[in-house]
Design a protein around this nucleic acid. Structure first.
Lengths: 244, 244
DNA sequence: CGATGTCTTGAGCTCTGTCAACGGGCGTGG
DNA sequence: CCACGCCCGTTGACAGAGCTCAAGACATCG
């Protein structure tokens, strides 16, 4: 168990460096096209022919899946250093809309160019594989919390995830600024906006979080361990009885 | 819309061939280690050091995620032609347990060997990327249905997914043999075993499915379109009001 | 044949979705 | 400057989908 913790610590410490390395590497070895985006801008859209991959240099991007019945669903969030468009490789078309949620810069380059450049610079290929692999692991975590945790724990987990994402990128982690409406958060977490609001209110009452300013989007997290404690506390498992 | 349908038709038709091609390709260019597995066997386990990737040649494999609180969660199912272990590339350790659910054969090979061989045979790299990309897209679909669909529709969607997976692999699709208990299905779909049982009973009453034999694990699907119709019918969206 | 595990079905309760009302922030326009 | 509308967030009341608990039927295997 100690070796497990040790490994995690090393990973965390090197995480910010990994992001910076990836960005440098891509920039140095590929013909990258930079693009400023603002909240609401589409980086690519579902059905559009696949050709380019993207890396978020700054800002915040949501992946929106459109179901056959026309329902929209936020399936992932992406921060600095994350890759976009990976789910388009297989089908030849992007599988989601990628929508910027904040002002930022996104880099794009041709997938074909990446493969070419990877012959000279194997580290590029490694970076691509790690990005895809990380996203797979992340998706599995999402699925797990979505299946197994009640609403309050999911909201708490969401804040924790966000704080962790900020921390890994060297940003302040005590105060986070969600650039999402309650409806968007609820959509991402598989619940209604009212439930999100109630969960946040409960956490605020328990002093697990505090709202700063007038606007209710900036959230102060006094102690991260209080957040994780809250998560565990409300995590009355939906299926506590082991399924085997 | 017609071009969309046309594209899909072509993709479907070539799908079985793609699986066969991948298996041939891997076999021809890599030092593959074959292993017979039986229900319950672990192909790899969470935390184990990453090194090899796996391809299912036959049988059925579940990916089980173990949460920090000790809850188990089935996060994916894999059939012939699917790759396993991809989520281990990033962290250096596998992120899930891969458990066989049926007798079958799994091929394994070193990730390093794959990268080496890919220099001579670029198609290998393409196959890897497509496998990862497909899995990402699949995970997003899971997330979507988990968030947006009520229990009955999720169970119906599960059967549909299974039938489709069989069809893509050239197996009979009218009668499917779930090698999972109700508890496992419920775990995978984010509901209790009782809810799974009730959903199946309702479908059987509506003659959307039929139980064959005494055992209730073999399910006959008279008409797939009846299944999809049932899905749509019970898909009273959790969040019908657009979130924006 | 009993023992065990799985599946089904019922009854009650809880969580969370639904509907509704209200307040606050912000931009627009008078 | 204030009035107004609009969007967002909060909170309450209520209902319903699905979880929990429980009992019993069925299949498999020793």
């Amino acid at each position: 168990m100690t070796s497990e913790l040790g490994r995690r610590a090393v990973e965390e410490a090197s995480f910010g460096q990994r992001i910076a390395d990836t960005l440098h590497l891509v920039q140095a070895t590929l013909p990258v096209q930079r693009r400023m985006v603002h909240a609401g801008d589409a980086i690519y859209q579902v059905g559009q022919e696949f050709g380019s991959l993207y890396v978020v240099n700054s800002g915040l991007v949501k992946m929106v899946n459109l179901s056959s019945e026309g329902r929209e669903q936020v399936v992932a969030l992406h921060f600095r250093g994350d890759w976009l468009g990976l789910d388009g490789i297989a089908g030849g078309h992007y599988g989601c809309d990628a929508i910027a949620m904040d002002t930022g810069e996104v880099w794009s380059f041709r997938y074909e160019d990446l493969l070419q450049a990877a012959l000279r610079t194997p580290a590029l290929l490694s970076a691509l594989h790690q990005a895809m692999s990380r996203q797979l692991a992340r998706d599995h975590e999402s699925l797990q919390s979505l299946c197994a945790l009640p609403a309050d724990a999911r909201v708490a987990g969401f804040l924790h995830y966000w704080a962790q994402a900020m921390e890994k990128r060297g940003l302040r982690t005590d105060q986070i600024s969600l650039r999402m409406t309650r409806a968007e958060i609820g959509n991402y977490l598989g619940m209604t906006l009212e439930t999100v609001s109630r969960a946040l209110s409960r956490m605020a009452r328990g002093d697990v979080i505090r709202f700063v300013e007038k606007g209710r989007r900036d959230i102060h997290i006094p102690r991260v361990d209080a957040l994780t404690a809250f998560m565990r506390q409300v995590a009355t498992p939906v299926d506590a009885r082991a399924f085997h």
